[in-house]
């Protein structure tokens, strides 16, 4: 057989190819995956919301404590100034 004929036969070997159908169970598999994804995503949304709330509460607490600290420091400085009436 000549090389050209052989090449042509190989090139034309997909002629008459029939479309293949996937497994009948594939649709159920896809739906299960989608349902699972939805479940996982709602769980992660809850986790993210809880983490966010925790972060905000920690920040508020830290801010409050630092405010209290700075105001008490201010009071100490003022009281020492008023007691001695000297700046140096």
């Amino acid at each position: 057989m000549k090389s050209e004929n052989w090449t042509l036969e190989i090139m034309e070997s997909t002629n008459g190819m029939v479309k293949v159908h996937p497994s009948k169970l594939l649709f159920d598999k896809i739906q299960n995956k989608i349902n699972l994804e939805n479940k996982v995503s709602s769980k992660w949304i809850f986790v993210a919301a809880a983490t966010f709330a925790l972060l905000i509460s920690i920040n508020i607490k830290l801010l409050k404590s630092s405010l209290i600290k700075s105001s008490s420091q201010k009071e100490t400085v003022i009281s020492t100034i008023s007691n001695t009436n000297q700046l140096y």
Binding site: S13, T14, K19
Partner: peptide, 13 residues
Amino acid sequence: GILLENKEKSKLL
């Protein structure tokens, strides 16, 4: 989906 007589050739393709 390939015709039986073309299986070997299409494998190479």
